[in-house]
């Protein structure tokens, strides 16, 4: 299997992805305080800093752009509302937003599960039928389908760790559980993922 040409190059020593680099400027707490005082520039900077982050997580978890946008709007709205009462030092803004987004996504994943996974259409590939692009789309669809079959917590933990590049302590803070529980979730999740994907080896092109 070849790596995609636009894969993110940066990674940690163990091969896992690195967390996205923070945008330069005032720290998040200071920006939020400025926002609460009515500073329009702070509002713009907070939007630029956090909207893509929350949207990316929601999109990867829900695999639906419209739903990801709904979750992002809701999470950002909660941030604006809490800004005047934000207590610096208790939690990082990014972690707090991740937690809100994860909870919103988990609610939606649970609702989806209640209607049945088979009723959810797999994403279609609208690009030209270039072999590599087609195979990439198939692999992504297989991964998303396998992730969707896992329990929600395992799904969220795997995406946070292996796609978003968050560390285990960060994931523990986001999910509100211990680091050991995160490791257990990740281990069980990865095992479940491998079992679910094993039946789609041909589709994934692993045997080539």
């Amino acid at each position: 299997m070849e790596m995609p040409p636009n894969a993110r190059p940066e990674s940690r020593a163990d091969g896992s992805p690195a967390a996205p680099a923070p945008i330069d400027g005032p720290d998040d707490d200071a920006l939020l305080r400025l926002y609460a005082r009515g500073d329009a520039a702070a509002a713009r900077m907070l939007c630029a800093r956090f909207t893509p982050m929350v949207h990316g997580l929601a999109f990867r978890l829900l695999n639906d752009r419209a739903e990801a946008e709904d979750v992002t709007q809701e999470a950002m709205l909660r941030l604006w509302k809490i800004a005047p009462r934000w207590r610096s030092g208790e939690a990082r803004v990014g972690t707090w937003l991740y937690r809100v987004a994860c909870n919103l996504c988990t609610d939606r994943l649970r609702r989806r599960r209640s209607v049945g996974l088979d009723e959810i259409a797999e994403p279609a590939d609208g690009r030209p039928a270039v072999e590599v692009a087609l195979q990439t789309a198939q692999r992504l669809a297989a991964l998303e389908h396998a992730l969707a079959g896992l329990p929600e917590r395992q799904h969220v933990a795997l995406v946070l760790r292996h796609v978003e590049g968050r560390s285990n302590p960060e994931i523990a803070e986001i999910l509100g559980i211990s680091v050991e529980a995160v490791e257990s979730l990740l281990s069980r999740g990865k095992r479940g993922l491998k079992q679910r994907l094993a039946g789609r080896r041909d589709e994934l092109g692993v045997l080539e």
Binding site: M1, M3, P4, A7, R8, G15, P17, R60, T136, R139, L140, A142, L143, E144, V159, H162, V163, G165, K190, L193, K194, L197, L204, V206
Partner: peptide
């Protein structure tokens, strides 16, 4: 193989 799939997702 799993890591390659995650790289695609990233």
């Amino acid at each position: 193989a799993i890591d390659v799939l995650f790289a695609l997702a990233r």
